[in-house]
Design a protein around this nucleic acid. Structure first.
Lengths: 410, 410
DNA sequence: ATAACTTATTAAAATTCTTTATTAAGTGGC
DNA sequence: GCCACTTAATAAAGAATTTTAATAAGTTAT
């Protein structure tokens, strides 16, 4: 009985009562993680357990340092209850969000607080060994500068674009040079357990746990960036599909065009409605003589970044606004399709393109009205992400917590 | 403690231990319903309960007549265990599958056995009160002729095309004349609790429970008929979406054409790849002078039914085969899209068009290869429904069981 | 055919959990 | 400021479950 919760969770002797207690403790922690602090009575009702039982579970968890008594709160007349919640400093999680032209990196405590973070750290994602080494270097440097000891970091979550098999730790689109799973390779360089995740799914998770999602259970998160990604939450849980490749929103065959997509196929939504497509359209229009804030002195078309166009739009550049609307209309048709299929409660627009707010939102809305069944889309709210660039990092951290504790979602 | 399971399930006094026991009994019944008969030891392992506990739960359930001791089975060396399972005759469920030009109706026992059924009973679905009255009449007649007393029928499941709100019992596409939910209207005419369900979802459920689905947890079922419907199973459970309107496969906006769909929009998959579309194409070709087995003496284009074309194809009619392939190619693009989105383990082709087997399967397969990401579609098996016309009835019956017992899926 | 080994079931003991009762802590009306 | 009323937490009693042990019923090898 002197085992800590972490030992219990990994000990594979699920013998009757001990096993049940581990599960109950998981449920308690899950409740704290999802819903926040709670009183003994609340936990008792939620988990259908008696008050003495909850008291004893909390006692164990407090002894393990995972839970803390946060003192009394107001009652509705009567003795004030104590509230309990996760001990923030009982462990930390590192999240790394690898983008094409930069990295976001951050650390959360055992609750969902972002303790330390760097946004848009300079990094260029290339599919070669140097780029991987640089990534590991950045992680190690970040850890060194943290105000907490390395041992307190319980795990690292890394988001990458493309196909990721999260359970095996393989990445197929980037850094696929070794026999061993990429997660192991990085693990051996950093010395902390590593979990990989698809970037859009991690962003979605961040948004689910501490973003615009309130009580919605069936939610789509769209990552509108160079490519298009999607994270799906069904019945309050992330959906993976058989091997974790679900959500290939950008590669829905929606067009009958001859543009070859990055994936090798033709007609993908990404070929006409994505950051890539936006850049191509922009270049063409500039070459055709269109005027824009961007194409001033020394402008090189090959250096044009998505961020430049977004910035231009935010500075009222007419061409940028016009082309974003065009892209938005096509993405909107894709979203309309998804609404017909999923009948979701909420669709979240995230990714860098979503930061253009109304410029992309309006054409998407009108396309949804045009292309989806009204009875179905009446059910669906459409919101723009409120975590923005942070969603990936927070999602990565929280997913690590989720996996290490084998948490549940309510 | 003298309450039966059915009383317990509806008594809303979830006081501690009694509440837990009801839940455990549900789990036992769910296990029997999903997996079949089981020994005490198996149940103990599955539910993490001790053998004496399982023994006492089974004792109660046997006393209520829901469970029966089915005697001893072979062991792998050692004393032979008793197997327990649902008592088939402890209750029955009626399922009605309303198609456009006929009705399938059947009765299952408490296990999944189809006790009595009528396939393709003449009925013409029209959106008026006489048609509804006729439907009720057919149900009442069927009940009268059954070899079991009416009181033994615990509930009725009715499948309808179109948008159904299953939890409220409303049908929006058919029989929407009254204030009261349609389920209540029928209930008052028949005198047995009625549940409505979308036809494709019910067929999917039938296929999940006793069709081609083995252990797959993420499955898509496609109902290829006049229109196109879909039932989605995620993590072993039917997916509904916010209000039960999910799965509108036929109304995915995949085309840029000017054909007005039944839903009022343009460009839906159904306008070019569906039974409706097939009939239209067929008529056009006949009018353009094409030869076919169908267009013999006295042929009236307005009477052409989907079944006629399917039958012609099965008799090697070249035109039918050619046009089915054309429709299949378009449906295949839709399926490819779904594979990219869901990364399912299994896709099932059902509905009347699926009975053309290879004629529709091959073009669908080649479209999947053409339009979906190979890493993703490598994961996905494609199978043709093996229940055929029966899937709807069985699904309807089993869904009633599921709801009345508030069963779980494992 | 019998010993040695498996597996199932029942019985009794031990533990765990829930109930109920009691004490503690606080609110609000008069 | 006291009394009636709430709610919370603890303690003791009682009920329910799991453990352990014992018994029953088989199989397989020698």
């Amino acid at each position: 009985m002197t085992k800590t919760f972490f030992e219990e969770i990994n000990s594979n002797s699920p013998t009757g009562v001990a096993y049940k207690n581990v599960n109950l403790k998981k449920k308690v922690i899950s409740y704290f993680a999802n819903t926040g602090n709670a009183t003994i009575a609340e936990l008792g009702k939620e988990l259908n357990l008696s008050i003495p039982k909850i008291t004893s579970l909390l006692g164990d968890l407090i002894q393990d340092g995972l839970v803390r008594d946060h003192g009394k709160i107001d009652s509705t007349g009567g003795r004030k209850p104590n509230v309990y919640g996760l001990a923030p400093d009982s462990g930390f999680f590192l999240g790394i969000d690898v983008k094409r032209n930069h990295i976001n990196i951050g650390l959360t405590d055992f609750q969902k607080n972002l303790v330390s973070s760097i946004e848009k750290y300079a990094y260029r994602l290339s599919n070669n060994e140097e780029s991987l080494q640089e990534l590991c270097q950045i992680i190690n440097d970040f850890i060194k500068k943290l105000p907490i000891p390395k041992e307190k970091i319980l795990g690292i979550g890394i988001n990458l674009t493309g196909r990721i098999n999260y359970s095996k730790g393989y990445s197929y689109s980037f850094f696929h040079f070794y026999e061993d799973p990429l997660s192991q390779v990085i693990e051996s360089q950093v010395g902390i357990k590593v979990f990989l995740e698809n970037d859009s799914r991690a962003m979605a998770y961040g948004e689910f746990c501490s973003g615009v999602v309130n009580n919605e259970k069936d939610v789509l998160f769209l990552n509108l960036d160079y490519g298009l990604g999607m994270g799906v939450m069904i019945n309050g849980q992330l959906y993976y599909g058989k091997s974790g490749y679900s959500g290939e929103f950008g590669h829905m065959p929606l067009f009958q065009n001859e543009i070859i997509c990055k994936c090798g196929k033709k007609g993908c939504l990404e070929t006409e409605g994505s950051g890539w497509a936006l850049i191509e359209m922009f270049k063409e229009r500039i070459q055709a003589g269109a005027t824009t804030l961007i194409a001033r002195e020394g402008f090189k078309p090959e250096d044009l970044k998505l961020e430049d166009i977004i910035e231009a739009a935010q500075n009222d550049d007419v061409l940028a606004i016009e082309l974003i609307a065009k892209v938005g209309e096509k993405i909107g048709r894709g979203i309309a399709l998804l609404i017909n299929i999923f009948n979701p409660e909420l669709v979240i627009l995230g990714g860098s393109l979503s930061s253009t707010e109304e410029y992309i939102l309006l054409p998407i809305k009108s396309a949804i009205n045009k292309y989806s069944l009204s009875l179905v889309n009446n059910d669906t709210q459409l919101k723009v992400s409120n975590l923005g660039e942070e969603s990936g990092v927070i999602g990565a951290c929280l997913l690590v917590r989720h996996r290490l504790l084998a948490l549940e979602h309510i």
